[in-house]
Design a binder for these strands. Structure first.
Lengths: 226, 226
DNA sequence: TTTTATTTTTAGATTTGTCTAAATTTATTT
DNA sequence: AAATAAATTTAGACAAATCTAAAAATAAAA
């Protein structure tokens, strides 16, 4: 069962959008791939044909278990190559993405497993994104600051970068500490402030200032999501 | 000026046939690429279009200076990747060719130059073939045994693998020693014996036995051939 | 030098991935 | 609920790389 480079790109983009936005639309996918909605529809049909995608016309789509597996393998290759480029070939982390976009389509499974060993099984790439293992399992989750989190995605607080007493006071007041599960309910573009929903509590609002200093991680390992 | 993977494969195959056979034909190229003569003709026209090939219909073809340069760069990439796979990823030399066939089409020039540095500028790949530098110059020539040399290709004797007195006697008798320039004029399939032409001397015949123990190299660096 | 064989090229199809423009379906407003 | 807007899909076209079958050019043989 052969999957072309273009198909791999579609699978990968769907996977990412699924992670970040929960829902994936034809238009969003077209935008992400810098292609046209009509082209996306064409490809969706082909991916369905290969049982990599669950798709009904006009009714939306999502990756099948097999499609997800394929997408994760492409992501694994991409991130391992990025790590290689930065750690072994002295590239800067900003310049590796484009090269890895090509390298990720090299097909040899053995190659990528050998590369993984050669690099000592790294678990995050140079941008901080987790690298799945050869079975497609993620052992780490990405840590990002609350200000960058999308809406309605539940995460767990994993760090506080500015530990001033004043900061901690605000957090304590809002019942936010390490391990707290929360999600963003609303973003106010005017000042960047956020309305948060902490589990079992009424909504609270925090400033952009505070949001920048709270680090969060995916609530559960990605591989456990079904 | 973009060159697709398929075009790069054609350029590379033409280059190799040019080296080995002197002349390249549509049929030979089709065989080398495991494709059809008609497909080759189609591609020749495209390569001519891009001025990578000098071609007149029915009259044969050869690489232009620019085409040769492009071919050499692909060969450089192929061989550096092979070296990487064997030396860093512990692959056996027999299994790297196919993987390198894919890796050679990764486009980043910077990548390949960094890889070259990382590998400490090797000058021959795991099969003994020379690796051109980033300007496309070869610093080494391949050493092969006389028994494997094609007809009518002048080479220079670069080594004798079995140094018995009896062997050396035969060679001395035929005026063959290190540095001698010679070419094969005829091969006798019956016993594998060869008729050689040594510069400024009448033709001589040697046995397969002897031919197997004489090592030769291209007479001149490949990069000097025009 | 004709005839025959071989090589090479053309003509026309096919596949993959993309596009534009138009049609259809679903979603949103009024 | 009808009208309008937005999203999605179809229809038809195109470029790249390949193929088969037939034609044309060149080479070899009688």
């Amino acid at each position: 069962m052969k999957v072309s480079a273009s198909k791999e790109n579609h699978l990968k983009a769907i996977f990412h959008l699924q992670q970040e936005q929960g829902i994936v639309t034809t238009n969003a996918l077209a935008a992400a791939l810098r292609t046209r909605p009509a082209s996306v529809t064409d490809m969706l049909k082909k991916l369905k044909e290969q049982k990599l995608l669950i798709y009904e016309r006009y009714k939306g789509f999502k990756l099948s278990a097999e499609g997800k597996k394929a997408a994760v393998q492409v992501i694994r290759k991409h991130r391992l190559w990025e790590y290689f480029l930065v750690k072994k070939l002295q590239f800067g982390w900003e310049e590796v993405h484009e090269i890895a976009e090509e390298l990720e389509h090299i097909s040899s499974k053995k190659l990528i497993d050998r590369l993984d060993s050669f690099l000592d099984h790294p678990d995050t790439d140079p941008h901080g994104d987790p690298i799945p293992d050869s079975q497609g399992r993620f052992h780490t989750r990405r840590q990002i600051c609350l200000a960058e989190l999308p809406l309605n995605k539940e995460v767990q607080v994993s760090g506080i970068s500015s530990q001033t007493a004043e900061m901690l006071e605000v957090l304590q007041y809002n019942h936010i500490r390490l391990g707290t599960r929360l999600e963003i309910r609303k973003k106010f573009p005017f000042d960047g402030s956020l309305e948060l929903k902490v589990r079992n509590r009424p909504p609270v609002t925090i400033s952009a200032q505070v949001a920048k200093n709270v680090l969060v991680k995916d609530d559960e390992p990605i591989s456990e999501k079904r």
